[in-house]
Design a protein around this nucleic acid. Structure first.
Lengths: 345, 345
DNA sequence: TTGATGTGGGAAAGCGCATTCCCGCTGCAA
DNA sequence: TTGCAGCGGGAATGCGCTTTCCCACATCAA
C-alpha cells in the first residue's frame, strides 16, 4: 500500500508541505487561490490519497467507531448495525466491525483492538449476562472498557450496562424497555386469551431474556392470570426449535389452548417450525408471540405477534446520534395470537 | 483518546524504546526474559494499549479489510458479511464496513475512504450494473479501484468484475454461477411443471438479475419450453411486493397454473406477500421459486424453492481465505413449487 | 518615510511506533 | 592473552501528516 505522499504533491506543486496540507485537508488557514489550484492539480495528477492513519496519528482522532455484535448475520444485530452505520455516515466516520458470538472474552479482545485503533467510540450490542461462566470474562471486559473510557473513549451499550463497569464516565446506555413492553404484551394477550401461558426463554442470567420474562409475568399477574411456566433454551432460532418437541407434547396433553411467549422473534420462529411437523398448528392448536419485530420475518405466516423495537434507531442512539428519538416499542398483535373462528375447525 | 505510550512504558521499565517495542509487539528479536518481564509489568501497570495507527504507519500495513455492501441489514449481504468477518478474524484483521445503497458514487467514496485508511484489501459485494444512469459512477468507481490496486491494494469482487476496470492486477473476482444455476433450476422446474413460466426480474442492466434471467430462459429452452415472460421491478422485497397486483391479475386470467421465478428470495417473498391478499395461494394457484436460499427465510411457509448459494463462503473467498472451497450452488425444490395433490382443492 | 499590523508561506517539531545501525559485552578458539 | 563472532541493548531515523512558530513581505496610518 504505497501511495503518493503529501510531500510529493508539495514538491510537484512547488510549495511547502504545510501549504499542501492546508489546501488538501481542510485547515482553518486558506492559502491563496492560485496556489491552492496548483496544489490540487498536483494532487490530482499524482492520484494523491491522504493517509488517514497518519492524519489520525497527527491529530489523535481516528474517525472510527467500533461495533460489537454477537453475529452480524442475525437480523436483530444487522438491523442495529444499519442504524450504527447510518449514524457513522452522518458523522463522517467509518464503522469497524467485530463479531464475538457473545463470548465475553472475545468482546474484551474486540474492545482492546478498537482501543488500539483509537476508535472514537464503541458500540456494544448484544445481551449482557450474569451467568457464572461469563463472570471472569465480564470482569475483564469491564476492565478493558473502563480503561478505554478513562483514556477518553465513549461507549454506547445497547440494553443493559456492562456488568461490573466501575465508571459511568463515558458510558452511554441505550435503555430498552424490555420489561415494560413484555408486561404490555402480556396484558394485551391476557385480555383475549384465557388459557395457560408458557414462556420460552433464553438461559437464566441473560439480562434481555430475564427482563422480558419478568415483565411478562408481571403483566400476567396484573391481569389476574397465574404465572407462566418457563422453558429455558438457547436465545436463538435453534433454541426455539429445540424446545419444540417438549412443547408439542405439552400442547397435546393440555385441554386448553396454550399461549406461548418466546422471548424473541427468531426463537418464536424456531418453535413454530418445530411444532409444524408435530402436527401442531398456530394459531389453531396454540398461539405464539415473539419480541423484536424483525423486519425479514414480517412476511411470515401466520403473522407473528410481537413487540416492535426500533432497532435501527437503537443503533443510531448507541452510536451517539442526537437527532434520534428515544426508544419506544409497541405491541403488535397479529395472526399468530388470534383466536381462530370456531368454524375453521 | 490519549493513552499511555510506548516510551512511557519504556521509561517506567528503565529500558529503551526499542527494547520495549521488541518485547511488546512481536519482533524477531527477543530481549532477555528478565527485561521482558519488567517491560510487561510496566505496560500492565500503565494499561498500555499499542497504537495501531502508529504501528500501521511505521510498518505500512493496516490490518484492515474494507467491506462494501448495499445494505448491511439485507440478509443476503449480512450473510456475506459474516463470511468476510470470519476470514478477517482468521487473518487477524478487522473489517471496516460501508453501506452504499448500491450507488456507484457512494461506492467510489467508500473505496477512497478505505484507500485512505490503507486497508489491505477491499471486498465489494452487491450487484454491478451497466445501466446508463450508473455509467458515470461506474467509471469513477473503476478509476478509484484501479488506483487503489496500482498502489498495491487487493480487491475481491463478488459475482461480477467491476465495470470498466482496466487492470486485472490485484482484482480477484469470486464467480457466482448464477446463469448455470438458474438454468438448472429451470430444468428441474420444467420437469414437473408444464404450464407457463414467468420471471420477476430486477431492473435491466443489473448483472446478477440479468444472468439469472438468461440462465433461466436457457434452461427453459433446453427443456423445450417456450421462453418466460419477464416483469421488471426492484431487486428487493419491495420490488417483489409491487409486482404482486399485476401478477395476481395475470394468474387469475390464466387457465393453467403459472410458475413464477423471482430472481432472488426476498423478491419471491415480496411477491408471495402481495399475492396473499389477492386470494392467490402458493402453491395452489401458482408456484414460485427464488434464488439465494436466505437462511432467515428457510422457515417460511410454503417453504420456498430456491437455489442455495454458500453466501458465507462467498464472503470468505472474497476476503481471500485460501481454505474455502470454490462456490457451488444447488437447486433446492421445496413446497412452493410442488404440484398440490388434487384432493386438497 | 517609518513603525505597526496583518497576511501568507515555510521550517520544524512532534504524533507513537518499527527498525536499522551501532556499540559494548561475553564466550570461545587460537 | 588476543581476536573474532555473536548476542543484546540503545540511539536515531523515518513512516505521512498536522500544527505551531517564525519570518518575509505588503499595507496602511501617522
Amino acid at each position: 500500500m504505497a501511495a503518493s505522499t503529501l510531500s510529493e504533491v508539495a514538491r510537484l506543486a512547488g510549495v511547502s508541505l504545510a501549504t499542501a496540507s492546508r489546501v488538501l485537508n481542510g485547515s482553518s488557514r486558506k492559502p491563496a487561490e492560485d496556489i491552492a489550484e496548483r496544489v490540487r492539480e498536483a494532487a490530482d495528477k499524482l492520484g494523491y490519497v491522504p493517509n488517514a492513519q497518519a492524519q489520525a496519528l497527527a491529530k489523535s482522532s481516528s474517525g472510527l467507531i467500533g461495533l460489537i455484535v454477537h453475529d452480524i448475520a442475525d437480523p436483530y444485530f444487522s438491523a442495529i448495525a444499519r442504524g450504527v452505520q447510518e449514524a457513522a455516515r452522518q458523522q463522517n466516520r467509518m464503522v469497524l466491525l467485530a463479531s464475538t458470538s457473545g463470548a465475553a472474552q472475545d468482546e474484551k479482545e474486540a474492545v482492546a483492538a478498537f482501543a488500539a485503533r483509537r476508535a472514537d467510540s464503541i458500540v456494544i450490542a448484544g445481551s449482557r449476562s450474569v451467568r457464572a461462566e461469563d463472570k471472569q470474562g465480564n470482569i475483564e471486559l469491564a476492565a478493558e472498557l473502563d480503561r478505554y473510557c478513562r483514556n477518553g473513549g465513549h461507549v454506547g451499550v445497547v440494553g443493559h450496562p456492562v456488568v461490573g463497569a466501575s465508571t459511568t464516565e463515558g458510558y452511554h446506555v441505550v435503555e430498552v424497555p424490555n420489561e415494560e413492553l413484555a408486561a404490555d404484551l402480556a396484558a394485551e394477550l391476557a385480555a383475549t386469551h384465557d388459557g395457560e401461558f408458557l414462556i420460552v426463554a433464553g438461559p437464566e442470567g441473560l439480562y434481555t431474556s430475564d427482563d422480558r420474562v419478568r415483565g411478562f409475568q408481571r403483566g400476567l399477574a396484573d391481569a389476574g392470570s397465574p404465572p407462566a411456566e418457563i422453558i429455558r433454551t438457547g436465545f436463538n432460532r435453534a433454541g426455539g426449535y429445540d424446545a419444540g418437541p417438549a412443547l408439542a407434547k405439552r400442547i397435546k396433553a393440555s385441554k386448553e389452548r396454550l399461549c406461548i411467549f418466546a422471548v424473541n422473534d427468531v426463537m418464536a420462529i424456531g418453535v413454530t417450525a418445530a411444532l409444524r411437523p408435530e402436527g401442531v398448528w398456530i394459531p389453531r392448536d396454540a398461539t405464539i408471540a415473539g419480541f423484536d419485530d424483525i423486519e425479514t420475518l414480517r412476511d411470515f405466516r401466520p403473522a407473528l405477534s410481537t413487540v416492535h423495537l426500533p432497532l435501527e434507531d437503537i443503533g443510531r442512539l448507541a452510536a451517539g446520534d442526537p437527532d434520534t428519538p428515544p426508544v419506544s416499542g409497541a405491541v403488535k398483535l397479529r395472526r399468530s395470537t388470534e383466536t381462530p373462528v370456531e368454524t375453521q375447525v
